[in-house]
Every structure is written in structure tokens, then in C-alpha cells.
Design a protein around this nucleic acid. Sequence first.
DNA 1: TCGCATTCGTCAGTCAGCTGATTATTTGCG
DNA 2: CGCAAATAATCAGCTGACTGACGAATGCGA
Lengths: 170, 170
Amino acid sequence: MLRHVQPTRRASVSERAKRMAEGLFKRPGFLIRRLHQIYVAMYLQECERFGTTPVQSSVMQVLLIQPGLDQATLAAEIGVDRTTTSNVLARLEKRGLIKREATEDDRRIRRAFLTEPGEIMVGEMQAALEKAHSRLIAPLPPEERAQFIRQLTLLVESNNDEGRALLRTL
Amino acid sequence: MLRHVQPTRRASVSERAKRMAEGLFKRPGFLIRRLHQIYVAMYLQECERFGTTPVQSSVMQVLLIQPGLDQATLAAEIGVDRTTTSNVLARLEKRGLIKREATEDDRRIRRAFLTEPGEIMVGEMQAALEKAHSRLIAPLPPEERAQFIRQLTLLVESNNDEGRALLRTL
DNA sequence: TCGCATTCGTCAGTCAGCTGATTATTTGCG
DNA sequence: CGCAAATAATCAGCTGACTGACGAATGCGA
């Protein structure tokens, strides 16, 4: 509570800061951190039997559509840092779900592919993924869901030039 | 669904999975992960001179309003795991921004307080925080912003019982 | 009063995400 | 042509986030 009562001027600064701090739970950044956290929990429930994480799923989804992508392009596809992508691919490779092959024409590049087991898993995973996504927005009235997703998309695309992990231009 | 269909049909399963995978960028979970990532980048830009992270800010905000909270209650206030809260407090303590004191009546409990420098920093930080939050939703038409925040709040509150890091009942 | 469940905090371990720096390799320009 | 710049991938190191497990302390019921 009012801990330092002495300097009257610092007290007023403090009071103003307190009023602003009250709004913590209405701030979009706070809410989005929490909602992201909730989505991860739902994903882990639905996809428990696969033992994967959301980003691992995203990587495998992209590789299903575009087999043989190099790591940098793959990173840009899902908006994840190159370094992170490298780590994720290493874990997937260790489990035998993907493989990486060096190319001859440009030996800096390693192209990534789903293996047979990886491809099968992606197929089996689709329903669980859909369920996790549905559960997340289920509390919204059905007529608001499309708009909510549209708003999210707008925010993501408008702010794409933030950070080292740029999303591919959509 | 069409999961157990046999041989030749693995190709068709794959085709179906591909169609579903196409929708990756429209899925709320994916968008929220990316938006959270963008918010963190904006926060780090605006609060660069403080050298803090979003969760560290949240902790300090809560301690400004409720000095002397125990770690478990503090964790529930911001919807973060006890373990994470412990780590975050340890880092803040190392920088001299907060301090922790054991209580006599219940010696399991350690109460957390802002120090003088910590309290001053929280005050100085408010404007930068507001700016980060504003920038995040700036691309939305002004008349949609309140609704967007309302929707986020609804989703967070409805799904509060996910994961180990429960948010205090609002 | 004793014993056991509960609670608080922490440790160990894993994964995602970032920055900064390094190693190979390729490309481009003078 | 040759060397500098750019690019691909990785390494080291940090923070946040979670799980599982543990010790210490508390509290409650038999």
C-alpha cells in the first residue's frame, strides 16, 4: 500500500502510474500473450498423441504443400526465426519425421522433406488441429468469428515488418 | 475421418491433408502465435532502454498496485506459471528492481516488493507500454478496436481453465 | 497428537524465440 | 580474375513457458 509517503512529488507520479497499471488486463498485448498461452495448452491436449508442438505442426504443414524448401524460405513461410527453424527441423529429423538434403548446385542450402512417417502423421493430425483451432474461438458468437479472424489477419499483415522473423509477403 | 482408407488411397488422404494445410494462415492459433511474436518485438523496441520483457513489466505493474504479494498469487494475477514467476522474480531481484522477503507467520511464503529503483522505473515505463499496445492495434479501424479487445477478453476469460497457469478469476 | 494431504517455492529438463557471432559458400563488382 | 559483400546454416547464450518432481512448512481430520 502507500509505502513511501514522504516525497510528495514522487507520490503523484506513483499515483498516476498506478492508475495506468490498473488497465493491465485490458491491454491487447497482455491479452494476446495469455490467449497464445491458452492456444498452446489446447493444442497440446488435442495433439498429445503426436508429441508435437504448434510450430512443429506448422513446419510439417508447409512441407506437405511445398516439399524440398530450404530452411530460410521455410522460416519465412511461418514467420519464425531462421535459428528457431533450424532447431525445430533438427528435432523433427531426430524423430525421423523429416529429412534434410544438401543440394549440389548451392552447397550452403539444405532442403527439407517429409519422410513417409512424417507425411502419414500430418494426414492423421489434421482433425486434431482443426479441433484445437475451433475450441479456441468457440466462445465467440458464430457470427463474430469470421470478423475476428479477419482482424487478426489484418494486424499480422500490417505489422509484418517487426522483428527478425519476417513472414513471407502474403 | 477418412483416416483408415487403404493403400492407393494414401494419395487421396494426402490430397485432403494438403487442402486442409492450405488454410494454415487463416487459423486463429497460427495468427495468434504470430501476433504475440509481433507484440513482443514492439514491446522490446519501445522499452529498449529499460531492458525488460513483457512479463517482467506485468510483474512490476502488479507489484505497484499490490505490494507484498506472495509468488503464487502474483503468478495467478498475470496468468503465468509459478515456476516462471519464480524465475522472473529472480532476474528482477538480481537487477535490484524488486526484493523478496520471507514471512514469519508462514515460512513457506516469500512476499515480493518493488524497490525504490523498481518503483521509479515502473513510473517511467508507462508511456512506452501504452505506445507498444497502441501500435499493435493501430492498423484496425478505430471503431473496431474496442470490439477487438472485448473479443480477446471474452476468449481469455472463457478459456481460463487451460494449462497450469490459471489466471485469477477476473 | 499424529499423520497425511496441501501449499509454496524451487530444481531439472524441454521447447520456442530472440540476438549476436561464426563458418561455409556463392555472388557481384571493381 | 580476385576479393569483398551477401547469403545459408549453425553455435552460444539468454528469456519465457511448461511439466514433473522435490523439500519444507502448514493445516486439518482421525
